[in-house]
Structure formats: structure tokens, C-alpha cells
Design a protein around this nucleic acid. Structure first.
Length: 659
RNA sequence: GGGCGCGUAGCUCAACGGAUAGAGCUUCGGACUUCUAAUCCGAGGGUUGUGGGUUCGAUUCCCGCCGCGCCCGCCA
């Protein structure tokens, strides 16, 4: 609700400044005063104007307050502190508007609205998903939810590198370490214990050691890679079998966490459908890449890394796109893929339905031929690539490639949604039995490494969380049947995990530690769920005690004047802060999208839950004797419950029926 | 060597250039016959790495230094 009010207030301040001082402002800073007593919104603008006008900030603040045009919802503007203008909102009006807003669904975007593609997860299909992948998937999925909530049309892609060296490595493992035939691996893929992604987790680490023992064995990898890229023959079949089976496991893991995708584009189709050839032609024609005649990059096609202009980038520092043996690098394929996302490649994948979620939503996968009834993919107006910050150099090259082709707008809309990695705390590494190399002894953390098999597997962590949650549920609800208990424990575990991944801002390295990740108390997902469950319990008890209580009539019954009476300062300050918090949801979601920072939503939701818990302790609603006050408190609890439930849905957290 | 990032309470983290730098955890003390305590209240905790600069105002912007991390491959 507060979003429109922010905007109209900013416009009003801008108008007042223009009318009074003939100054055009582009942005007006609005903030929350430190205490609600001082007002509900404030601008420090007079300080800034004081310099330009050579007058005291307080004088200017007074003039601005007087010159402010009428803004609906704002009762008055006043001078505060050394020169702030503080705004006081109409509490009753805000309450009524927020209640109405919380009961209104945002309209679906039209089918031809500009499309946003979010690419996330992108786990190599050669091993189980680990906590690093989890941060990527949870950040990406939450961002998708935020985009959709703010009215955007979104397509979610999870790129599958099914023909790369990592898949080649496990293929080498099966062929040369395990000495398994294709038929034998087919049986392994079907079995549930050990599941194939776990089995490959260990095998991948063994293959790494196998190479280290004798580097000549890397020739086996090169040979396997060549056969996989070629796409025919037994080795390619084995790679296809393994990668597809592991992708299925990854989808199931993601599904446990409420993470879903629309499309799985695969590298095998990028190769088979000659996406690179199309991109290569464009890059050569527009001079975006150059053939190095001499120097260390002789025989390669390279792209200059610095922008045009005087530096112009040295050919020696340029990034190799095509090797001297004529094969394309990973970045080259990535440029082709990026061009395809914007509909700039002039080619398309075929598509087939690959996996169906319980809600009947289909995940599509790229193929060479494809189904006629497939939806239209790609053709995005903007692309977010959710990839950790270690790849920012390569992401810059991808966007640079798009720009070098003359697609300036698409280059600007190629966004690297960057975040820091998840690492293991030294204690955690010890608990996992990871040997720490002597030179790494003093490091503050241990990097997760799929190659070395060092890390916490996503499903293991979720299993542990579910077991912990189940203990708590059994303790509190011994009467419930086992299936119900498990369902509750699952929701709580997901909340703990997703919130843990979201409470850190993007550029904070998460140093993973079991003690913190397994907590259900304090700043955690279960705390938030518990707050909502408490609100729900009030209404459940009310229905039990008084089935005919006219809940549906409350929004009509509590008009602005009635709400104002309850919220009036100073007695109503605490309740008003709760209303103000609840009103911020949509505004906050917009900020989180603009800043690409899902943690803002997590922090905000936690703050609102804290205020609600305090409210819950302070006001015992059901025993309230004053019927009108009780009605108001009920509607307020209902409002907060709705907004918190919505906020948690944005974080991918569901509300258990009981806790 | 070059590029990017980080350094805030004992620990883990917040804080669009604004008012008294805030949370959680930990520690200590208190609140359950109640809408279930996965909760709440109170206390303790800070030279925001360091030295300068810009500014009415700096945790935030700029520069130097110290410490730490990541990236810089004809790997992906």
C-alpha cells in the first residue's frame, strides 16, 4: 500500500521545492525516522538545499513543510531535528487501505508482456547437488517469485552442461575404474540406494585422484570428451544416460525445496543444432572477434576484453574464444546461448516435455527435433544469470560479446546476478572428515569442492533438518499420525534451509556451519512460520468458541475512523508500527527487485514477525471484553497474517497447519 | 603483478551519505492454569581494521596503509 504513497509524497516534495526555490530535483530521499513518535516518513532534503541556498536547514524545512501540496494519506508535515521534514500519515486511512490491498490479488501480466529470463541452478549433471548449488537455486527461485509478484512475466531456465568435462570424468570413472558396461550402469541408474547422484559424488572424487596419480590418464578424459561431443557411440550413450538420470535427481532435490523450472536447455543441443556456428558467423562478420596471426594466441580467434577507446585492449590479453585447433571454448558457447535467450541467434531448440510437477506444470528440455505443442521459449527482453561472483570475469565477456555485435540494449539487459560462494567453516570441515592441506590450515574457511568430494550434499542437509524438525513435532504433537508429523517437519525444514540461504546479503560469503543452519530459533525460517501459526491459532480458537463470529464483516465494520481511534498516538503507537510494517510489503518487494537483493525481504519479514510476536504477548485478543476493540485487533492480526504469509511465499516458505 | 570484493558487539550478520550504529546467537536475570514458551521482557556488550581527505553530516564516498578472500587457462 505504501508504495503509491511514497511516490505521491516524493512528487509533492519535488513540486514544493520547485514552487518555492525553482529547483528541479530528480530524486527525493525518503526514510523512516528513528522513532515513530517523530513521524512516519522523513526527508533530509533541507540539509542539501541549505548549501545551495545558503540558508539554515530549519528555515528551509519550515518553508517546505508549509508549501507541501495536499497528499492523500499524509496528515501533516513538520520540522524536526536540525532540519528534517517529517511526515505524519493518516493512520486510520492507511489501515483501511492496507487491509483492502492485502485482500486484492495482483493481476497476471499479459501474455505479450516483455519476458524476463532467469537462469539459475546450472548444476553439472555428474554428481549430487551440494549447499553451494542450494544457495544459487534458492536465490534464483526467490528472485523469480519477487519478479512475478511485482507483475513481471518470467521464464526460468536451468542450463545443463551435459557434454562437458565433468560428465566425461564420471564416464571415465565407470569405464576405467568401475569397469561397468552400459547395461550395468543402466541398472545402477534405476536403483534408489545408493542413488546415482550420490554414487557419482564419490566416483567423481576418485576419478580426480586417479588423474592425479598419473597425469597421462587425462588422455582418457580428452578421448571421452571427444566421443561425447561427437554424440554417437557407446561413450556418448553412457554420458547421456548418466547426465539425464542425475538431472532427474536434481529436479527432485529442487522440488523438495519448492524450486521449479520451465526449461532445461542443454549443451548437447547447442552443439548438435550448431548454435555456435551461427554465433561464430555473426562475431566474425561484425569484427567482434579477431584471428590472432602471431603472439601467444597465434591461431586462435580472440575477443578483446577492454572496451573500445584508447586502451582498446591488447590482442595478447584478449580472451580466447576459438582455440587454435578450431574447437570453441565454454565462453563461446555461452555467448551463443545468451544470444539465443534474446532471440538474436536466428536459431531455436526443439523441445520435449521432460518432467511433470504435482501441479501438472511441465519442465521442458531441449532436443534436436521436438514436440509441435511446445511453448515458445527465449525471446527475452532482459536476462538474469544467477552465477557466483567467481565467474564475473566470464560473465563480463559474455555481455561484452553481445555488445560487440552491436546489441547495446541487450548487453545492458544481460545482468549477472552475482553472489558469493558457500564455504565450510573449519569446524564443519573437520566434522565431515575433510583433510585440510597444511597451506590451507590458516584459512578462515574451506571451499566446497565437487571435484574433491568435499561438501555437504543438499539432500543430506535436508534429511538432517527434517529429522531434527520431526523430533520437535513429535514432542509437541504426539497425537498426530506419522504422515502428518512428517509433512509438518518437511515444511519446517524447508523454511529453515531457505531462510538460512536468504538471510545473508548476496556479497557475503556464507561460511556454513551445522549449528547455525540447523537452528529453529531466533532469526530463522521456523520463527517466521511460528508467528503466522500463532495468528492462525487465534482464528481457529475463535471459530471453535464462537462459530458465528462475523469475521467476514470486519473490513466493513472497522472503518477508517474506528481504526484511527485504536491507532491514535501515543497509546496506539505500537499497533500503528505493526500496520506500517504490514503496509510496506509491496514497496519492499519492488526495492528487493531493483537491488537484486532477496535478503531484504527476509530481513523485513523477520522484523514484522518480531513485532507481531510482541503484539501477541501484549494483547490477548480472544479475552478482550470490549467488542469493538476485539474486532479491530482481530482484523489487525488477520492483516499481519496475510502479509507475512505472502512474504513467506515470496521466500518459498509454506505455513504449517500446526507447530 | 592486474581486476573484483571483504574487514562493524565474544560469535554470525544488518544498516538508499542522515537523527542515539541495529538484530540473532552466546552469557546473566525474569515471564507458561492463558490465542501452545520453536515465544516474550530486561541486562551486559562498539575507537565500525588503520591514517588522511571530501561534506553541515561518513560504517557508507575518495586516497594511502594493514589483514583476508575470489578471479585473471588454447578447463568448464
Amino acid at each position: 500500500m505504501i508504495a503509491q504513497l511514497y511516490r505521491s509524497l516524493q512528487d509533492a516534495v519535488r513540486a514544493a521545492v520547485k514552487a518555492t526555490y525553482q529547483i528541479e530535483l530528480d530524486a527525493v530521499v525518503l526514510e523512516r525516522p528513528p522513532q515513530v513518535k517523530l513521524g512516519d516518513l522523513a526527508t533530509p532534503l533541507p540539509f542539501e538545499l541549505a548549501r545551495r541556498l545558503r540558508r539554515s536547514p530549519r528555515e528551509i524545512a519550515a518553508e517546505l513543510a508549509a508549501a507541501l501540496p495536499k497528499v492523500e494519506g499524509v496528515v501533516r508535515a513538520e520540522v524536526a531535528g536540525g532540519g528534517y521534514v517529517n511526515f505524519v500519515l493518516d493512520r486510520g486511512w492507511m489501515f483501511q487501505k492496507t487491509v483492502a490491498d492485502s485482500r486484492t490479488l495482483a493481476p497476471e501480466p499479459p501474455a505479450d508482456a516483455p519476458k524476463i529470463i532467469v537462469e539459475h541452478t546450472n548444476i553439472n549433471p555428474n554428481k549430487a547437488a551440494h549447499i553451494g548449488h542450494l544457495r544459487n537455486a534458492v536465490l534464483g527461485d526467490t528472485f523469480v517469485r519477487l519478479l512475478r509478484f511485482t507483475g513481471q512475466r518470467v521464464e526460468v531456465q536451468n542450463y545443463i552442461d551435459n557434454t562437458g568435462v565433468q560428465v566425461a570424468d564420471v564416464v571415465v570413472g565407470f569405464q576405467h575404474l568401475e569397469r561397468k558396461s552400459l547395461a550395468e550402469v543402466e541398472r545402477l541408474v534405476e536403483q534408489t540406494s545408493p542413488r546415482i547422484d550420490y554414487l557419482c559424488w564419490d566416483l567423481y572424487a576418485r576419478v580426480t585422484r586417479f588423474y592425479e596419480e598419473d597425469p597421462k590418464r587425462l588422455e582418457l578424459r580428452a578421448q571421452a570428451l571427444k566421443e561425447i561431443e561427437d554424440g554417437t557411440g557407446e561413450t556418448a550413450r553412457l554420458a547421456e544416460l548418466l547426465s539425464t538420470a542425475i538431472v532427474r535427481r536434481h529436479l527432485e532435490t529442487a522440488q523438495r525445496l519448492e524450486v521449479a523450472y520451465d526449461l532445461l536447455p542443454r549443451e548437447s543441443e547447442i552443439l548438435a543444432l550448431k548454435f555456435w556456428d551461427a554465433a561464430f558467423e555473426q562475431l566474425k562478420q561484425r569484427g567482434a572477434i579477431e584471428f590472432a596471426q602471431s603472439g601467444k594466441n597465434a591461431g586462435c580467434w580472440v575477443m578483446r576484453t577492454s572496451e573500445e577507446g584508447e586502451g582498446a585492449g591488447d590482442l595478447e590479453d584478449a580472451k580466447i574464444i576459438v582455440r587454435s585447433n578450431g574447437t570453441v571454448t565454454y565462453v563461446g558457447k555461452d555467448i551463443a546461448y545468451q544470444l539465443w535467450k534474446f532471440g538474436l541467434l536466428g536459431r531455436d531448440f526443439g523441445y520435449r516435455g521432460f518432467y511433470t510437477y504435482p501441479n501438472q506444470q511441465v519442465v521442458w528440455m531441449s532436443t534436436t527435433d521436438g514436440q509441435a505443442d511446445a511453448p515458445a521459449f527465449g525471446q527475452a527482453a532482459r536476462v538474469y544469470n544467477v552465477i557466483d561472483s567467481r565467474q564475473s570475469y566470464l560473465q563480463n565477456i559474455v555481455a561484452g560479446g553481445v555488445r560487440a555485435l552491436g546489441y547495446e540494449e541487450q548487453a545492458r539487459n544481460s545482468v549477472h546476478f552475482s553472489y558469493e560462494m558457500v564455504a565450510l567453516s573449519p569446524r564443519c570441515a573437520r566434522e565431515l572428515g575433510i583433510e585440510i592441506a597444511p597451506e590451507d590450515e590458516k584459512k578462515p574457511f574451506v571451499e566446497v569442492s565437487g571435484r574433491k568430494g568435499q561438501g555437504v550434499k543438499a539432500d543430506d542437509l535436508l534429511d538432517t533438518l527434517e529429522a531434527r524438525a520431526l523430533e520437535e513435532v513429535e514432542k509437541r504433537h504426539p497425537d498426530l499420525d506419522s504422515a502428518t508429523q512428517r509433512a509438518l517437519a518437511h515444511k519446517i525444514a524447508v523454511a529453515a534451509l531457505r531462510f538460512f540461504m536468504l538471510r545473508f546479503t548476496r556479497n557475503t560469503i556464507i561460511i556454513f556451519d551445522f549449528k547455525e543452519a540447523l537452528s529453529f530459533e531466533g532469526e530463522t525460517g521456523p520463527y517466521l512460520q511460528y508467528s503466522v501459526v500463532r495468528a492462525q491459532n487465534i482464528f481457529r480458537k475463535l471459530r471453535e468458541a464462537d462459530p458465528n463470529y462475523p469475521l467476514a464483516e470486519l473490513p466493513e465494520r472497522i472503518n477508517a475512523a474506528a481504526a484511527q481511534q485504536r491507532l491514535a498516538a501515543p497509546e496506539g503507537d505500537d499497533l500503528w508500527e505493526l500496520v506500517l510494517g504490514a503496509a510496506e510489503l509491496r514497496w519492499l518487494a519492488e526495492v528487493a527487485v531493483r537491488e537484486q537483493e532477496p535478503a531484504l525481504v527476509a530481513k523485513w519479514a523477520f522484523g514484522l514477525a518480531q513485532r507481531f510476536n510482541l503484539f501477541y504477548h501484549t494483547h490477548h485478543i480472544l479475552s478482550e471484553a470490549d467488542a469493538e476493540k476485539k474486532a479491530f485487533l482481530l482484523l489487525l492480526a488477520d492483516l499481519v497474517q496475510r502479509q507475512l504469509t505472502q512474504a513467506l511465499a515470496l521466500l518459498g516458505i509454506e505455513i504449517p497447519e500446526k507447530m
